[in-house]
Design a protein around this nucleic acid. Structure first.
Length: 200
DNA sequence: TCGAAGATTGTCT
DNA sequence: GACAATCTTCGAG
């Protein structure tokens, strides 16, 4: 088991945190048991000047966790169907976060499979923001929690060399869609789709 | 109180 | 490849 990433880890530029979270382990503890996965894909949302960031419209009840302490979870519901999980970065008052888009199942795979449905398996268990939340049992009750203890924990995992990391535009957004703030482990079979309903 | 939009996914053609 | 599902949040009236 790697050491738990301290709060300081998140109190840096969001792009750096997004890059360094690759290879880290996201772990969830629920009454059903423990499950974890290695983070293989992230996106940075860099504050009020980022049109795609939820905080672009200012501080609201929903976005309050983004303005809080670094190293906190920000979980929100999207499209009436899915949950997405972020790690809040930067100091208080600077609303930025890193969206976890895909993980590689590490432990509790049987539990993830049960949550996702028996017909789902392999990379499809966790290769998308909504999918990994479903697999790890993450929902609104996990919002605004510290990532150092309790139900949600992020640990040091394997180290990822700089030349293993690909940087691309973010996925699934309509504003600032060309900003290169998506980070992924090159060659990982567990990353989400590379393009939105793109051809080819 | 109402209407519109959204950091997605699964299913059907 | 296209589209429906489904609901929370926010801002305007």
């Amino acid at each position: 088991m790697g050491r738990i990433l301290p709060r300081d880890f998140y109190d840096r530029d969001t792009e750096i945190v997004a890059r360094e979270l690759l290879g880290a382990v996201l772990e969830s503890n629920t009454s059903e048991g423990r499950a974890s996965g290695i983070i293989v894909e992230t996106e940075a949302y860099v504050g009020e000047h980022d049109p795609a960031c939820h905080a672009a419209a200012g501080r609201t009840r929903r976005t309050a966790p983004l303005y809080g302490r670094p190293g906190t979870s920000y979980v929100y519901f999207i499209y009436g169907v899915h949950w997405c999980i972020n790690a809040v970065t930067r100091e208080e008052g600077l609303p930025s976060a890193v969206l976890v888009r895909a993980v590689e199942p590490l432990s509790g795979i049987h539990l993830m499979q049960r949550r996702r449905g028996q017909q789902i398996h392999g990379v499809n268990l966790t290769n998308g923001p909504g999918k990994l939340c479903a697999a790890l049992g993450i929902d609104g009750t996990m919002n605004d929690l510290p990532l150092q203890k309790g139900r949600l924990v992020v640990r040091e995992g394997r180290s990822v060399a700089a030349d293993e990391i690909d940087v691309t535009p973010r996925i699934g957004i309509t504003k600032a869609a060309d900003w290169p703030l998506r980070y992924l482990i090159r060659g990982s079979r567990y990353v989400s789709r590379s393009r939105v309903t793109g051809s080819v």
